[in-house]
Amino acid sequence: MEPDTGIRVFWANHPHLATVIVVAVSLFAGLDFDMLTGDMTRASWWAVVVNTVISLALIWRRSWPWAVLAVTVTGDALSGDTQLFAFAVVMYSLVVHRSLQAATIGAVLSVAVLGVVTFQQEGHDGLGPFIGLYGLAVIIPVLVGGTVATRRRHVRSLEDRAARLAREKEQEGKLAAARERVRIAHDMHDIVAHNLTIMVRLADGATAVADTDPERSRKAVQRVAALGREAMTDMRRLLGVLRDDSPDTPGDLESLIETFRIAGLPVTLRRHGPDPSSPGLQRVVFRVVQESLTNALRYADRPTDVLVDLDYGDDPIRIVVADDGRGTTPAPSVGSEQGLNAMRERVAMYGGTVEAGRQVVGWTVRVDLPHPAEGADV
């Protein structure tokens, strides 16, 4: 720490000590030779009283500088003595605790009032020394106070900026944490809800045909076990991403379609053009198809065809998942539409749009995704 910095810190931490010193110096500076030698007259006693009042008024120089200035100027005018030290302290306080403009106005008014009093008491001969003394009592404190005030404003602005940056950093951290929680919730929904939906449907089907078609029942149960293992693998992958930020690889679209077929959903897959090279875009396509087929499996009433149409050739890329079921309106008990919201957020990350709703027959999900720029990925 630099020496001047240590001095400033000391005085900042001991404001009452500074006040005691200022009052004591003002009391001593206001005494003339007769007062110091003890040769006191009635006029001398009056000057002591005025000097004491002015000096004690300096206690409030920080909070009430205008009032202290008024007391100082009034005391000088009534006593006829010159309280230069107290006047200089008030000028300094006006600059530091108010403004340079306030100090200028205070100096002009004070010098004008005291100049008139001096002219009445001493004539023209007294104006020269008066202007010289009070000029110094104004210029030096204003220069010093202006420097201190400028530095304080600079330090205050740095502190405000640091506090603002700290708040912004904290807010960014909270937003990042919120985004991460939403992402985890979406991934958990994709892994758990979708797999559980298919597993329940397969288990119900296996139970229904256990007596009439044991082989088909056995295959369904095997598929349930396979889906459970896949869900566990996906969970481990998700936890691995949280631990070490490892990449999230795209899912197997063909295997996903086959799983829904085994669950009893008549899915038809059509592709146009080469698959996107972006792994991030492939993940989005996989999740959109997964969510759409899961909703069809849950809500479509006896669909005869569920079309998954992937058109990679045009820009934007178009994904259409349409079923011809009759009862495709989501049940009131589901309600949250978390999967559809997650789909919209995933697609929005790539600048795409999602349209989902009832058609004349069935339900259709339509997603448009612009091709990413060359070399770009999310």
Score class of each variant (00 low, 15 high):
S79F: 13
A43P: 05
V284E: 14
V285I: 15
G30N: 15
G228F: 00
S26K: 02
I105P: 06
R216N: 12
M199D: 04
R298K: 15
I21V: 14
D125H: 03
V96F: 02
P247H: 05
R283C: 05
R98I: 08
R271E: 14
F33Y: 10
E291G: 12
D245H: 09
E215Q: 14
Q290K: 05
P247E: 10
K169Y: 03
L175H: 09
I140P: 02
V308C: 15
V306H: 04
L238N: 07
G173D: 14
A86L: 06
E254H: 11
K174A: 11
T147P: 00
D204L: 07
V365C: 12
D234K: 12
A107I: 01
K219E: 08
L256C: 02
R179Q: 00
V367E: 08
T353A: 11
D248A: 06
R156S: 09
P15E: 05
L269V: 04
R270I: 12
F10E: 06
T328G: 15
G327Y: 13
V49P: 04
G205R: 13
M35R: 11
P3I: 04
A231G: 00
D187W: 08
L269F: 03
D309V: 11
M232I: 14
A373C: 15
S278D: 10
P276A: 13
L100F: 11
E345P: 01
G362R: 01
A193D: 08
H371G: 02
T72N: 09
V25M: 08
A88V: 01
I7A: 13
A177L: 12
A163V: 02
H154S: 14
D368I: 00
I139A: 13
R151N: 14
V221R: 03
V306W: 01
G106C: 05
V155N: 09
G335P: 00
T104D: 11
P279M: 06
E159I: 14
R302P: 00
I191P: 00
H97W: 15
T5R: 09
V241T: 10
L242F: 06
H14C: 07
D305T: 13
V50K: 09
T74W: 06
G205L: 15
T328I: 07
I131Q: 04
A210F: 09
T329E: 10
R344N: 09
R183P: 02
A210V: 13
V200I: 15
T259K: 04
S246G: 10
A137C: 10
V73D: 03
V365H: 05
R161T: 04
S99N: 04
V155G: 02
G375S: 09
E122L: 07
F286V: 02
G240A: 09
H272G: 09
